[in-house]
């Protein structure tokens, strides 16, 4: 195994624990045995590669990619940032996918029964490939908060779900971004699974006036940091 290709071990303290009673769904779904830690093999330092030609540019514009007879309801926003690794290097050419509720907090999903209306002009998903500097950019609408069955009266703060591929399958990440200043952030059970307040803060997108389009859309910035490369704790297995 070439040392320069290995990924640094995942920093367990940076992530929520598998079992977190504040988030009820973890109770029966969190493994009870410790993960088996091993040094990356070729299987983990490699991962799928996606090309620009597989996507349509409109895929990154959620205000248009499911529009039927008009614009979606809600506050138009630009959501952008960079994908970096732990060594602060850009991660170019990787697929970033997002999904979200509409402005009323309703998902276009056969299993979502929240009473807010479906927006006929909003699908709620988009995707893009990062550029040479690791940058991505979506145009979308700001999602609404929504209730979910957990404790007595739990509401998710407005959030965007992210799926990110890195350069190897062990960098694969699914996360969520929140909006700076939302009072529901401090009450959220999902964010509450993370004891580390600084870690929670890393999931909060910040208002970015410089990237906003006057008289059109505010911008929010969310950078994503994947595992870096580097020294391993383990003896090579393959």
């Amino acid at each position: 195994m070439d040392l320069d290709l290995e990924f640094a071990p995942r920093d367990a303290a940076a992530h929520p624990p598998a079992l977190a009673p504040i988030y009820r769904s973890t109770l029966l779904r969190a493994p009870r045995q410790p993960l088996l830690s091993l040094r990356s093999t070729l299987t983990e330092i490699t991962g799928p590669i996606f090309g620009e030609s597989e996507l349509d540019p409109i895929d990154a514009d959620l205000t248009r990619n499911h529009a039927r007879d008009g614009d979606p309801i809600g506050e138009r926003i630009t959501l952008h940032g960079r994908v970096l690794d732990g060594d602060a290097r850009a991660v170019p050419g990787v697929l970033v996918e997002i999904w979200q509720a509409n402005a009323g907090g309703r998902y276009r999903h056969t299993n979502d029964s929240f009473t807010a209306a479906i927006d006929p002009n909003f699908g709620g998903c988009g995707r893009v490939i990062t550029d040479a500097e690791g940058r991505y950019r979506f145009r979308t609408i700001r999602p609404g908060p929504y209730p979910f069955p957990n404790r007595e009266n739990d509401w998710r703060p407005a959030h965007i779900h992210y799926s990110v591929f890195g350069q190897g399958f062990s960098q694969r990440l699914i996360t969520q971004s929140y909006f700076e200043g939302d009072p529901l952030i401090a009450r959220d059970a999902i964010l509450g699974t993370m004891p580390d307040v600084a870690a929670r803060q890393r999931l909060v997108a910040t208002l970015d006036m410089e990237a906003s389009a006057p008289f059109e859309a505010l911008a929010w910035r969310f950078d994503i940091v994947l595992r870096g490369r580097g020294a391993s704790r383990f003896e090579s297995v393959a």
Binding site: D11, P16, G86, W99, H109, S163, I174, A199, V225
Partner: peptide, 18 residues
């Protein structure tokens, strides 16, 4: 590592949309 990793979050029940 120089930068702390972005924490993982659950994919939730509506992962299919994305």
């Amino acid at each position: 590592s120089k930068l702390p990793e972005t924490p993982s979050q659950t994919a939730g029940p509506y992962v299919h949309i994305g």
